[in-house]
Design a protein around this nucleic acid. Structure first.
Lengths: 154, 154
DNA sequence: GAACAATAGGTGTATATACACTTGAGCTAT
DNA sequence: ATAGCTCAAGTGTATATACACCTATTGTTC
């Protein structure tokens, strides 16, 4: 009986490692990001940058704060993440009518990069969907979406 | 017909944003990490650090490279992530028998921090499991696990 | 046993992420 | 009109992540 507490801890630790939502999501993110980055490499865009350009493209002209909310990303993180894209000339950031805001928009060069990257994205995305199977993949997407809602509200 | 390509692109962009495995996994990771960090805060550990301490604890004494493989994490990332834990005295890193290796192990202080953090983890983890429902949560875990295998091999 | 390959690890650099704090512009109530 | 509040954004700092490159130790081959 004297080893009871230690044993209990070890059981719990195994449960943590095997079931922790944060750990397992981050692990999957790492693995998938590496795969996507590898395939997107010829486009010159990292996957995070690719998805940012896509988000800017869809939003049209939008402010930092609104874009950050769309992306479930801290506003200051977005500010930092936009910097490399601005430096490469893929997006431009100009003051908005409300002088407090700054408006982000895609440039012609950004549109070009996107055109080059999309077929690569389709390839790697298809490989993941095929690997899991369409049904399971759709289910995973929907589960992830609900997880975001759950975590983001409380 | 002259707007055809532009329209096609916009459709595709919506598909990318709504279905990209990398984007949606990272988004969920951000949301969940923020939630877990918030609840774990009284422990003094970030969730990433908590899971690292758990991994070291389970592995017993292990090398950097082996631990990195377990975590599906770049070896150099792990080296960097261990630094704050070593500085706080939660782990210790000593040379192994093979002089090329360095062996990572939990300290008494690390065990203490873990003991304080585990009940907090159980609370936030339970809220996620309850929110999604046990069945859906188990399914999501298994889908994530297969996604890691899929992405990590090719 | 010496030359070479393989292995374990660290550093330099760059990006991703977020919290605390600050600045400056717009809004509101009196 | 102005004092005070709110809102948008940036900076300082710290951690998380990974690639390219380097160093040192171990193993292998002749």
């Amino acid at each position: 009986m004297k080893e009871q507490t230690t044993q209990l801890d070890m059981v719990k630790l195994g449960i943590v490692a095997n079931t922790c939502a944060c750990f397992n999501l981050r692990k999957a993110s790492r693995a998938v990001t590496q795969l996507y980055d590898e395939i997107l490499q010829p486009s010159g865009l990292l996957t995070t940058q690719f998805t940012l350009v896509v988000a800017v493209s869809i939003a049209g002209s939008t402010t930092i704060t609104r874009l950050a909310e769309d992306l479930v990303m801290d506003r200051t993180t977005l500010t930092r993440n936009l910097k490399p894209l601005e430096r490469q000339g893929l997006i431009e950031i100009v003051p908005g009518q409300d002088q407090r805001t700054r408006v982000v928009a895609l440039t012609a060069k950004g549109r070009e990069a996107l055109t080059k990257a999309i077929p690569l994205w389709e390839k790697v995305q298809a490989s993941v969907v095929e690997g899991l199977g369409q049904n399971r993949w759709s289910r995973l997407l929907s589960d992830l979406s609900d997880t975001v809602l759950l975590a983001h509200k409380g």
